[in-house]
Amino acid sequence: MPTLDSEAIVTGLLAAAQLTVSPQEKATFVKDYPLMRSNADALYLAELEFVEPAVTFDPTVYYPA
């Protein structure tokens, strides 16, 4: 059960990011945060449980032939 509201979460995230914003800017972030969060949460689909990321790492590129 969530215990913090969007205002508290955004306040904390801005502090963690060391960002000092205007009251109006913060109000917009607070307004938008729930939708942003739910859009991100919607990507945690069950069918992706065993799917690899689309970006891959190739160590050989740092060693010219």
Binding site: L14, F29, A40, L43, P53
Partner: peptide
Amino acid sequence: NLTRPTLARGAFYTAADYAQASRFRSMWS
């Protein structure tokens, strides 16, 4: 004033969100 709020949104995602979006990207591709 209309750029910085959009850029700052990146601070509201977690590292796992990015990794997960990349996995979604694989599936959707």
